[in-house]
Nucleic acid binder design. Sequence first.
DNA 1: CTTTTAATTTAAGCTTACTTAAATTAAAAA
DNA 2: TTTTTAATTTAAGTAAGCTTAAATTAAAAG
Lengths: 223, 223
Amino acid sequence: MATVSKEDYLSVIFKNLDDKNEVKANVIAEKLSISNAAVTDMLKKLSNEDLVIYEKYKSIKLTENGFLYAKNMVRRHRIWEMFLHQVVGIPWDKVHEEAEKLEHSSSDYLINKIEEMLNFPEFDPHGDPIPAKDLKLPKQKKSVKLSLMKINQKGRVVRVNDFDNEFLSYISKIGIELNAKLKVKEIREFDKSMHILVGNKDWNISQKIADNIFIEIIDKGNL
Amino acid sequence: MATVSKEDYLSVIFKNLDDKNEVKANVIAEKLSISNAAVTDMLKKLSNEDLVIYEKYKSIKLTENGFLYAKNMVRRHRIWEMFLHQVVGIPWDKVHEEAEKLEHSSSDYLINKIEEMLNFPEFDPHGDPIPAKDLKLPKQKKSVKLSLMKINQKGRVVRVNDFDNEFLSYISKIGIELNAKLKVKEIREFDKSMHILVGNKDWNISQKIADNIFIEIIDKGNL
DNA sequence: CTTTTAATTTAAGCTTACTTAAATTAAAAA
DNA sequence: TTTTTAATTTAAGTAAGCTTAAATTAAAAG
Ligand SMILES: [Mn+2]
Ligand SMILES: [Mn+2]
Ligand SMILES: [Mn+2]
Ligand SMILES: [Mn+2]
C-alpha cells in the first residue's frame, strides 16, 4: 500500500540514483533525516511490494514498478510546484515545501487537470524536468555548475537545487531566477568564492552557493 | 500534535454538533467508519491536548481551542473546494473527495493566498459557508429541505449536502446546481417522491434525494 | 422499580514507522 | 594479510491509530 512515508522513500531513492542507478541506504537515511535502522526496515517492506531490489549490505535499486511509482511522485511534486508558482503566485523559495506535502494528497485525475491548465509544462520553477503523463522525461539543456565557470564567462540560469529554502530565498534576493543572465567577474582562489554580475548588480557568492546553481554557457556565437 | 486523523475527528465533531453543541461518540465512529473503541481512545488524546471536553459516558464538546482548530479545518476544506471548482474546473461531485485530502496538506499561508485569489468567497460550491480568516462564519440564507416543499411552490437551490459523490453526480445530471430554480409539480404520498421542474425539464426524485437539497422559497413578492 | 437495550469503555492485540544500542559485515587502510 | 573504519543489520522498545471481544454503565421500556 502507498503511504506518505513510502512515497517519500521512493522519491528520494529516485532522485539520488548514481551512475549505476543505485543508492546507498546511508544516503536515504540522511536525506530523510531518519536512522539507518529505519531505512533497513522500510527497504524490506518496499522489496516485498516489488518496488525496490534489496539484498543485504548491497546498494538499493528500483524495480520497474518502483521506477514508475517514483517518477509519478516527481511528476506530482513538480506539477504542484509549477502551479503554486504560476497560478497562485507563491514565490520560488516556498513552493517546494508546500509541494512536498501536496504530492501525497492528490489524485492522478487532479494532477492531470492541473497539468492541462498549465499547458503541459516541461520544467518546474527550479528548472527540473517534469515527467509527462507517460512518465517520459523531457531532455534537459546541457549545463554546468556556476562554481565551475571561468572568469569572464557568461551564462543563463537553467536550473537550481530546490532543497533548501534559505538558499533559494537568498539567490532570489540577488536577482537569480530561471533564465537570468550572469557573468563571472572574479574568482578568489583562497575560498573559491566568486564575484558575479547579475543584471547590472555585483554580488559576491560562496562556492557552496555557486555549487547549487546550473548554467547554460553563452559562448560568442550566442551573443 | 496535529495529524490527519485528529484533524478529521475535529472536523466531524464540529460538523455534527447538536443544539447543545455536543456530539455522541457514536456519531463520530459512524461518520469516520471506525469502531467505537477507537473513538474512545482518540477522545482521551484530544482531551489531553485541550481540544475536546471528554467525560466518561458523556457527550463530547469542543474546547475553545478545539472550536478554532475545527473551524480552520472547515475553512481549509471549503476554500480548496472552491478553488478546485472555479479555478481548476473540477466538477461539483468530485471536489469534496480531493479537498478531504488536501485540507491536511496545506499551510495557512497557502490557504490565505488561495482565498485571496478567489476574492474571499463566502460559500463553497455546495453552498456551505466558508469561515473567514478570523474564523467567523458568514450568515446563511434561510432555507428549507426540498422534501418539505409543497405543491406549486418555487425555489432556488442554495445548498446541497456534499458527502455523497453519487448523489451529487446524479443531481448534477438533472440540472440541479447552486442557484438553479425549480418548482414542485407533484408529491406522491405513498413514498414521498416528488415530481419537480428544473429549467424546462421534469424529473422524478425520491424523498432521500429531496432530503439533501436545500431551497430558498421564492414567494410571489419575488417573482 | 426492575429489566432490557443501547452506548461506551476496557482489554488485548495488530501494523506502521520510527528510535537507540549492540552486533555484524564489507570496504579501506596499514 | 591483518587491522581499522564505516555501513548495515538485528534486537528491543515506543507511539499512533486501528481492530474485536468482553465488561460496564446509562438510558429507555415495562
Ligand atoms: Mn513528500
Ligand atoms: Mn522543484
Ligand atoms: Mn480529511
Ligand atoms: Mn463542500
